[in-house]
């Protein structure tokens, strides 16, 4: 558990350092996600035999359980920032109805265009019958 958390934080820390150091517009945790992905690839490459040198928690499924626990409760993590909205409703009041229109219409169109383009291109390049999981 602790080894898993340490690894996750280490990936985020390195990601943050890379983002700030190189001045790239990608958020640190997203780079950390890439680093974690690379770690998993290396861990499971039999040729290198990395698992021999790693703490057991990183290879016996504890890392996966920790990750799943965090992802199952992703909603919780938006609460502190979300509560800030309640405290600043006055800021929105002047432009409220207009902002509501912009937010709802643009979010709906964004969902619509993304899903339709995804399906249209998938239908073009994939053999018929492919629908998510093989």
């Amino acid at each position: 558990m602790i080894a898993s958390l340490a690894l996750i934080l280490l990936a985020q820390l390195l990601g943050e350092a890379i983002a700030r150091g190189a001045g790239v517009p990608i958020p640190g945790p997203v780079i950390g996600m890439g680093l974690m992905f690379a770690f998993l690839l290396l861990r499971d490459t039999a040729r290198i035999g990395l698992p021999r040198y790693l703490p057991k928690a990183l290879t016996d499924g504890t890392l996966e359980t920790t990750a799943r626990g965090l992802l199952m409760n992703l909603s919780l993590m938006f609460v502190p920032a979300g509560v800030g909205v309640v405290g600043r409703l006055d800021l929105l009041r002047a432009q409220g109805p207009k902002l509501a229109i912009v937010l709802v219409v643009s979010t709906a169109l964004s969902l619509l265009v993304t899903v339709l383009v995804f399906r249209a291109v998938a239908a073009l390049v994939e053999p018929p019958g492919t629908d998510g999981e093989p």
């Binding site: 996750i8 985020q12 974690m36």
Partner: peptide
């Protein structure tokens, strides 16, 4: 709780992998 947003983004690598 807010801080956990970062680690949660990192572990998105898991389902992706």
């Amino acid at each position: 709780v807010h801080f956990l947003l970062g680690p949660a983004t990192v572990v998105l690598a898991m389902p992706l992998y």
